[in-house]
Nucleic acid binder design. Structure first.
Lengths: 135, 135
DNA sequence: TTTCACCTTTACGTAAACGTCAACATTGGA
DNA sequence: TCCAATGTTGACGTTTACGTAAAGGTGAAA
């Protein structure tokens, strides 16, 4: 007998630190597609992964619509015709470029943070020195 | 005579591809602080840089409030006392961790994009092969 | 059996980040 | 002189991503 691991909404909510409202909202937006036991939602591993991916996208500033688009693309790769597949490849490439831009942004912001930290530490030294002298 | 480079709102709007409404909104939120010539706003290089940084932050999913916080931190490093400076250093560290998380996210999403691309290209090959055989 | 904890739907509320008028000032050219 | 471009301040509208009740079903434990 094969048993497939499933999750309740509160399990997922705890694991990822989001409210159940959020999870239901993502379903409403077509990002996840849990099964049902009567009225109650049952989440599969696939749902869990998609939730994870959705949250990861969010951290990168992806809108839910963008993430859904990627999910739909993923699903459609199995049945697309030539034209469709080439279109998908194009979109994927655009996303990759977006990510590259973000990577560059991160590097720059990191530099800026470092520079402010430096400046801050020097200001701190000055203050501490003054305190020592006055003591 | 020293001349300092200034910019009009439309110049900046064109350079960065945002509407003038957006620039005025950022001012209202305290992110930039242009001078005035009568009623008309005059933007300095500092304003231009801050606009650039704000937009960069946006691409990384920073809220305007967060970016403003960083600007305020930057400004306050020049006059902070010890306690204040240590607090700032703490906040900077938190931001750095956030950036690290984002970097990890980007790497993972990039992998996922690559994997979908792969899958897509293989599906494309299958389609193209079929076409050749039928020809 | 009642009291939880946990689940559900429906629906209105809200904060952020602008868009989109409206109505008006000012300024450099034809 | 007048007009088009560019600027200004409100102020209301819109989208996204949920928050927050309200009102109720369900199963297990006490």
């Amino acid at each position: 007998m094969i048993t497939i691991k499933t999750y309740s909404i509160s399990e997922l909510s705890k694991e990822f630190g989001v409210t159940t409202r959020t999870i239901r909202f993502y379903e409403q937006q077509g990002l996840i597609n849990p099964g049902r036991n009567g009225q109650t939602r049952i989440y599969s591993e696939k749902d869990r992964v998609r939730l994870m991916l959705t949250l990861r996208g969010k951290r990168l500033g992806f809108s839910l619509a963008e993430t859904k688009e990627l999910f739909d693309l993923y699903d459609s790769t199995l049945e697309g015709d030539e034209k469709q597949l080439k279109l998908i490849l194009g979109i994927l490439d655009a996303k990759r470029q977006e990510l590259e831009q973000q990577l560059q942004d991160i590097i720059k912001v990191r530099q800026e943070l470092d520079s402010v930290t430096d400046r801050c530490q020097k200001a701190l030294e000055v203050v501490v020195n003054k305190k020592q002298k006055s003591a």
